[in-house]
Amino acid sequence: MSTQPVSTPQSIDQLVQALEAHAYIPERSLATAIFLALKLQRPLFLEGEAGVGKTEVAKVLAQLLDRPLIRLQCYEGLDVSTAVYEWNYTRQMLQIRLMEAAGHVDEETALEELFGPAFLLKRPLLQAIEPVNGQAPVLLVDELDRADEEFEAFLLEVLSDFQISIPEIGTVRAQEPPVVVITSNRTREIHDALKRRCLYHWIDYPSFEKELRIVRTKAPEASEALARQAVAFVQALREQELFKLPGVAETLDWIRALVALDQQALDEQVVHDTLGVLLKYRDDVQRMQGRVVQEILAQDR
């Protein structure tokens, strides 16, 4: 544990403070998981519904530790040439032409030159393993559930010893492992082998007090009264039987929308007009129209 940079928080309390200073209001259990991930140098696996602030954790960590953030957005079919490295073919071709023009094409030297670092395009995973300005970066592997099993297997390999081998160059090994944050919306189950290599944390929807603090921090332009009302409304909405519940991101969008509409307080009409910011399925919107909204608003008062 000697290679820790000075800025790494030394206790869970310090980490909570540091996160809050960067406008991220965590549950204590999340802070504990992050703290341990940093201390034990293990990847952090965050699962939770969309919009509860999983991706944000990586961004805040990068700021807080003052390290560069490298983001790998996952999708089906993500492969080595987009995730790790690719050779720059056009430049290689050009180089061959130049070599020909200069009149010397010796296979040995040509190969060595063509497959050297100058022609290597580094993709996120390779970048994450090579330190930037002597510092290991924060690597965000976002929405891993969107990638397919093949990529998962590959990621498992990289995460187990933080090294990547490129046949033409050799093995690249991280001197200091990057801080790795993996997120999943859980549209499918990630394989246990991968999860077991990580510290796992499920991020839930925040409590009323937490969410109010988040809103006050992130959207200070809204009045306290409006923020309270809106957060209470969203919290009540999460009690309803909906296909897709609104996340914190939706709450923030909604508050900003309300401020943009110059609203001082919630009323049925404005809720009705802006419900699309919170609910993204037609069935859900229909379900919430009319009486249900009235009831929730009445409760809040």
């Binding site: 869970i12 204590r28 259990s29 341990l36 991930a37 696996f45 796992y200």
Partner: peptide, 20 residues
């Protein structure tokens, strides 16, 4: 790395490590 007298922290830590 955890203050053992804080039961909640120990529990959170154990959960992060053991649950997947």
């Amino acid at each position: 790395h955890v203050d053992l007298s804080r039961r909640g922290d120990v529990k959170d830590a154990a959960r992060a490590v053991l649950v997947s």
